[in-house]
Simulated assay, not measured.
Amino acid sequence: MPRGLSAGGAGPGGLGTNGRYETPQASELQRLMWTKNGASGHLDQVQPRIYVGDMYAAKDKRSLLAHRITHVLNAADGKFNVNTGARFYRDTKITYHGVVAFDMPTFDMSPFFAPAANFIRNALSTPTAKVLVHCVMGQSRSSTLVLAYLMIHENLTLADAIRAVSAGRNISPNAGFLEQLRALDRELHARRARS
């Protein structure tokens, strides 16, 4: 059973009417994000040693060094997005990973879930490491990849991952990304149920 799964009635992170876990509907998940518990700064800690931020945070090397950021995952890499890249950080000791993704509901972000999650996990295997995951505004692409990491490597349900991240920052994965995360939630739950 995924960690953090509530044993209550149907609803976000709960059990369905048949007593089995069911991935919540997108509307229920969006309601979790509408609570607006989190912040909306350029750089916000959403989990121990994991930060979500925008393009301004990503380009402010002085602030990154002050926060002791050691790894940057750019969820909006490329010429038409936030064009930083490893060369931008060459005068620091920051390890960089870029994902060329577009914040459109039709864009398939799912092929990047596992590589991005592995980058975050590998970074956090060093006790002093801190990871910034960013996109342009720090709400859709970046939060989608952090949610995927929490689901894949921390065994959280999608609803519990949303609760965890939105407590530290206002997030809003677009409708397409939310559906892709729902599919990941179903896939991970089915895999864990078989093992």
Rank of each mutant, 00 (worst) to 15 (best):
L15R: 04
P127N: 01
R191Q: 11
N170R: 14
L147V: 03
R87N: 14
Y21M: 01
S143K: 05
R31L: 02
L5G: 01
R3D: 06
G53S: 03
A26N: 05
C135Q: 02
M33W: 02
F119P: 12
S125N: 13
G19E: 04
T70N: 05
H67N: 14
P2E: 02
T23I: 03
M33G: 03
P48D: 14
Y149C: 00
H153P: 01
V136R: 12
I94K: 05
M151L: 12
F102E: 09
G85D: 10
G176C: 07
A101H: 08
A117N: 01
A26L: 08
V100Q: 14
T23M: 08
A116C: 15
N118A: 15
S63I: 13
P105E: 09
A117F: 03
E154F: 01
Q139F: 08
R186Y: 13
S40M: 13
T106G: 09
L43C: 13
G85P: 07
R121L: 12
K79C: 06
G38S: 05
T128A: 13
D103L: 08
S63K: 13
H189K: 06
R169T: 02
A101N: 01
I162G: 03
Y149E: 00
K36S: 14
S140E: 01
S195Q: 15
A10L: 09
L43N: 03
I120A: 06
N37L: 11
P2H: 14
I162L: 12
F102A: 14
A75M: 10
L32V: 01
V146F: 10
M109L: 14
P105W: 05
I171E: 03
F102H: 10
H42K: 08
Q30R: 13
G98D: 02
D91Y: 08
P24N: 04
I162W: 00
G4K: 00
G78N: 08
H71T: 03
N155T: 09
N37T: 03
L43E: 05
